[in-house]
Structure formats: C-alpha cells, structure tokens
C-alpha cells in the first residue's frame, strides 16, 4: 500500500534530519573549537551532501514522472474501461453508474456544477485509491481499477461549504 510506504520513507528521512540536529545540539555547548577549520570541513561535507541530494532527486524525479495520472484526461482511455460520469454539487454526488464487477477498469469523468469539490475514491478498507478535483467548467478523467469486491466510498476532498463532510456516497463492486 502506497500510503504506508510514503509514511515510512518520510519518517526515516525525518529521523535522519532529527539525528543530525540532536548530534549537533549535544555537541554544541562543549568547549568551542576554532571556526575556520570547522567551516572548511563543513563546506566540503556540504558539497558531497549537495551532490547526493541532487542525484537522488533527479533519479526520483525521473522515476516518479514516468507514469503520470493525466493520460485519461488527455484522451488516452483504456479500451476496456467503463465510462462513468460524476457530477459534484453542494452537497451530493450524481453518478451515472453505481454497480460494478470485480476487476472493472473505470474511468470517472468528474466535474462539478456549483463550486469546486474533490472526488476521492476509497477502497473497502477505507484507504484512498485515487482522487481528482471536481470543478465547474472542467472535466477530469480519473482511472480506478476495482480490484476486490466490496463497498467503495466516494468522498469530497475539497472544502465546499457546510455539509462538505457529509458529501459521501458509495458504489458496490460484486464478485
């Protein structure tokens, strides 16, 4: 599950930052050493740090942008996909189809009629599978594969007024 991995990676990186700060904090009030040699050493370490960060950044950037979620919106819809219209309104969803079968590839064509909403699709385990913005005058195509049977919730992810939190509906996926 991507959320768990994201959390883990973040936590590790944050721990690395924390460890560095704790190390320096513990050593800070020790007897002062001369600054220029320390600075020189620090600068050379920083140069290495910079390169590590740059190369890692570029690699991650390339890998993560190889597959962007915008293809369906640009017209590249998989041939077997079921097309479903979703229209967000204060405060409910209009969906053209609510019954699906396991393994269905669904492309939601998402728009809104009044204000900006956000459509988040949640799996039976209440984890988000995918989301997009629902905006008046625009249509975003959101591709989701229903891998397992159960109830999938559609929730509003963009604040849209007083019943924003009640803007929840469900579709069912059968075996």
């Amino acid at each position: 599950m991507i959320q768990g991995a994201v959390f883990l990676v973040s936590a590790i990186l944050m721990l690395v930052v924390a460890a560095t700060f704790i190390f320096v904090a513990l050593n800070a009030s020790k007897k002062a050493v001369a600054y220029p040699p320390l600075l020189e050493k620090s600068y050379s370490m920083r140069a290495k740090f910079f390169w590590v960060l740059s190369i890692a950044g570029i690699l991650i950037l390339v890998v993560t942008t190889l597959d962007l979620p915008y293809a369906a919106t640009r017209g590249d819809v998989p041939g077997n996909a079921k097309l479903v219209d979703v229209d967000g309104r204060q405060w409910f969803w209009n969906i053209s189809q609510t019954e699906f079968e396991k393994g269905d590839v669904v492309v939601f064509s998402v728009t809104a009629s009044d204000v900006t909403h956000g459509l988040g699709i949640y799996g039976p385990n209440l984890r988000m599978l995918n989301q997009t913005q629902a905006m008046p005058g625009y249509s975003n195509a959101l591709e989701v594969t229903f891998g397992e049977p159960g109830e999938y919730k559609l929730m509003c992810m963009e604040y849209c007024g007083l019943a924003h939190h009640a803007m929840v509906t469900a579709v069912t996926v059968s075996e």
């Binding site: 800070a28 009030s29 740059s54």
Partner: peptide, 30 residues
C-alpha cells in the same frame, strides 16, 4: 513537482546546514 524538489535545496543545504555548522562545537549557551 520539479520546483517542489528544488525548493528543498536552499533550506536544507544553506540555512539548515549553516545553522548546524555555526552551532557545532561553538560553546553556545543554550
């Protein structure tokens, strides 16, 4: 996305690193 990544650099590499360096073994009173 690219600018989000780049935006981290000046903070981490200059301000963060600079603060760590200036404080390390400085005898600072906390």
């Amino acid at each position: 996305q690219i600018f989000s990544y780049l935006g981290g650099f000046p903070i981490l590499v200059v301000t963060g690193w600079g603060a760590l360096t200036i404080v390390h073994r400085s005898g600072i009173e906390w």
